[in-house]
Design a protein around this nucleic acid. Structure first.
Lengths: 201, 201, 201, 201
DNA sequence: CATGAATGAGATTTCATTCAT
DNA sequence: TATGAATGAAATCTCATTCAT
C-alpha cells in the first residue's frame, strides 16, 4: 500500500540488489544501507520506496517465486507425453538450479522465513499447491498413457517428488546433486514395465 | 571437545535453552541475554561458558545432530531384514520429527547456517555422509536378500532417499508429510516383484 | 581528508570535546558516549560522523599537531636573526605549553599511542622530521651569522634540542620547567663568544 | 598493605609478567587474566596476591624505577672525575635503554600514569629529584675540577640534562637516538676550554 | 594458595527508522 | 525523489572483582 512508485524503476533496481545480497549471504545479512548503496542512493531514500525492510524482502520473494516456480511450469512443451514432460521438468529444474544458484538461495532463505512470517508463507504456499496439482495430473496422465506403473498412488508420488525437489532446493551444498543418475533412477522407479523400465535414462 | 567444563551442567542447560529459542524463532533471533536469563544467569556469565555466541550455536548443532541423525541410525534392530530396517528407519525418522519438531527446526536453521559457517558445515557434512553410507549398505543388502529391485543403483537411490529426508526436514510446514501413504509408496517403488511389491505398506 | 562532511561543524565540535577529555584524563579514558553528550547528541549519532573511535582520535591528533607544531614554525618573524628566531621559537613553545596545557597533554597521549598505532605514528613522524629540518637550518644560519659556536654539529645539536622539547612536552608535571633560566643556559651554551654569550636570557 | 605474601615468589613472577605486557603493549592493554595465565594461575588467583589491579601496576613501577634510576646512579666508579662520571652515566643510560627497551617502555607508561595517579606520582618524583641533585653535584664538581665551563648555571644545566633524558626515555621510537654524536655534542657544550672542548667525545 | 562460577557495570558498534529540508 | 543528521533500541563482548569451596 502506497508502496509502488509510478513506474518504479528504482524499485526494481532495489529488488535486484536485495536479491543479490540475499542469494549470497542470506536474509539475515540483508542491510538496507548496502542495498541502497548498490543502486546509488542513501538508505534514507530507500525508505521512500519501501517503508519497511520487510516490504523489500517480500518484493524479492515475489520475484524469486515467479522465476523459479511459475515460469518452469509454463514453459513445458505441451505436445510431449506426460512421462517426458515430467522428465523435462525435472531436468530443467535441476539445470536452472545449477545455472542460477542465486535464485535457489533466495528461495531457500524465504522458505525459512515462511515459517514465521505469515505473509511470506501465504505467498509460498500456493506455489507449492499448484506444483503438487501439476504433478498429480502429470502422473495420472502418464499412467493413462501407459508410461507409469499403474500401481502408483498419484498423490503420494507427487508428495515424494515434491520432497525431492524441496530437498534439492533447500539442502544447498550439502544435498546430493539432482544429476542424471538420480533422475534416471527416478524414471526407472516410476516407469511401467514397458517404457522407462526397459532402459534408457 | 566443546569448550570448557568437567561437569558442564550449566553448559547443557544453556544449550537446551538456546535450542528452544532456535527451534521456535530461528538462529537469527537467538539472543545471548535471553538464553542466559532462561537458565537464571547473566549474559556476562554465559560468556564464561561460551566465549562466543557462535560456540553456543555450534554446541546446539552438535546436540541436534546427535539426536536426529546419530541416534536413529544406532537404534535399529539388527535382526531385521534390510528392507524392514529401512522402513523402520524412515518411519522412526518421520515419527521423531513429528514428536520433536524443535529438533527439526534447529537442524533446518543450522543447515542454513552451514552454507556460510565452515565450522558448522564441517559438523553437518559427516552426518550426511554417514547417512548416505548407511543407506547404500542397506540397499545393497536388501537387494542381496531379494527384497529390493535388482536394477536399483544403490548410490542414486541413496541420493534420492537423502533428498526426501532433507526435503522433509527442511521443507518445514510447507513440505508434504512423510506419512504412511508416502512411505508405502517408497516401499512399493523399491520393492522387488516378490516382497514389498506384493502388498502391505 | 578526514572522514566525511562538507560543513563538518559537528565534526569539529566533537573533536574539540574529545580533545578536552584526552587532555584531562587521557586517551584511555575517552568514551564515545561522553564526547557525544558533550556536544548534545547521542553516541549513536557520533558514529555517523566518525565510524570508529579511532577515527575520532586521529582527528584529534591532526588538530593538536597542527596547533602545536605546524603553527609555531610558521609564525616566526622572518626578519630576525637565526639565533633570535630560535630563542623566540623556544620561548614561544614554552609559553604556549604553559597556556594550553591541554594541547600538550593531548600530544603526550598521542605520542604514547603512536608506538602502537601506525596511522597515528604516520601523522606524528613528519611533524618531528620537519621540526628537525627546521632546527638544522636555523643552526647553520646562526653559525653563518656568527651567533652560534662554529664547532656545533648542526644535526647533533638539533637532536639535542628535539630531545629537550620532547622531554618538556612528555615529561609533564614531572619535567623541569623550560623557564628562562634553562632557556638562557641553552643560549649561552650555543652562543659564540660574541652574541648570546655576552648576556641576557 | 596486606599485599605481600611471605616470600612472594608468585608475586615476583606476576610482576615480571605484567612488566612484559606493559612494555610491549602499554598499561592500557594490561589484563589481569593474561598476566595470571602467563604464570600459570587463574585471574581469580591473581587477586590473592594483588587485591587490585592498580596494586599490581604499582609493583611493576617500583621494580622498573629501581632498575632504571637507582641502579645506574649507584654503580658509577667513584674514582673518576666528575666530567667523566657524567659521561659514563649518560653513555650507560643510553646503552641500557638500547638493551632493555622493555624497561623504558614501562617507565614511559608509568610517567603517563603519574599525571593522574598520585600514588604513582609520589613514587616517580623522588627519583627525578635525586637524579637532579646528583647532576647538580656532578656539575659543580666538574666546574671545580676545571672540566666544565665556569659560567654554567648548575641548576639550569641539570634541568637541561634531565629534559634530554626524559625526551629520550619518553619520546620512544620517535625521539632522536642518544647516540655518540649527541653525547659528544653535549660534552663539547659543557666543557671548559681545556678538557672536553679541545676535542674527543 | 588456588579455582570455578558468577556478576555488575560498562563500552563500542549496528541498524532500521524518522524527519526537516 | 533524495539526502544529511539524528535517534532508540539493542546486541555482543570485556574485564575486574567477589566468593564459596
Amino acid at each position: 500500500m502506497a508502496t509502488r512508485g509510478r513506474h518504479g524503476e528504482r524499485r526494481e533496481q532495489l529488488v535486484t540488489a536485495a536479491m543479490a545480497v540475499i542469494a549470497q549471504r542470506g536474509v539475515g545479512a540483508l542491510r538496507t544501507r548496502e542495498v541502497a548503496a548498490a543502486v546509488g542512493i542513501t538508505h534514507a531514500s530507500l525508505h521512500y520506496h519501501f517503508p519497511n525492510k520487510i516490504d523489500l524482502i517480500r518484493a524479492v520473494l515475489e520475484r524469486a517465486l515467479h522465476k523459479q516456480i511459475v515460469l518452469p511450469m509454463v514453459h513445458v512443451d505441451e505436445k510431449l507425453s506426460a512421462a517426458e514432460r515430467l522428465r523435462v521438468l525435472l531436468v530443467g529444474l535441476a539445470r536452472q538450479m545449477r545455472r542460477e544458484p542465486g535464485n535457489v538461495a533466495v528461495l531457500k532463505e524465504l522458505h525459512q522465513f515462511a515459517d514465521r512470517d505469515d505473509a511470506v508463507r501465504a505467498l509460498l504456499e500456493p506455489g507449492i499447491r499448484r506444483w503438487r496439482e501439476f504433478l498429480v495430473t502429470l502422473i495420472k496422465q502418464g499412467q493413462a498413457e501407459g508410461d507409469f506403473r499403474p500401481d502408483l498412488d498419484p498423490s503420494a508420488t507427487a508428495s515424494l517428488l515434491i520432497l525431492v525437489t524441496l530437498g534439492t532446493r533447500l539442502g544447498g551444498s550439502l544435498a546430493p546433486d539432482l544429476d542424471s543418475a538420480v533422475l534416471g533412477q527416478i524414471a526407472r522407479l516410476l516407469g511401467a514395465d514397458t517404457a522407462w523400465n526397459r532402459g534408457e535414462t
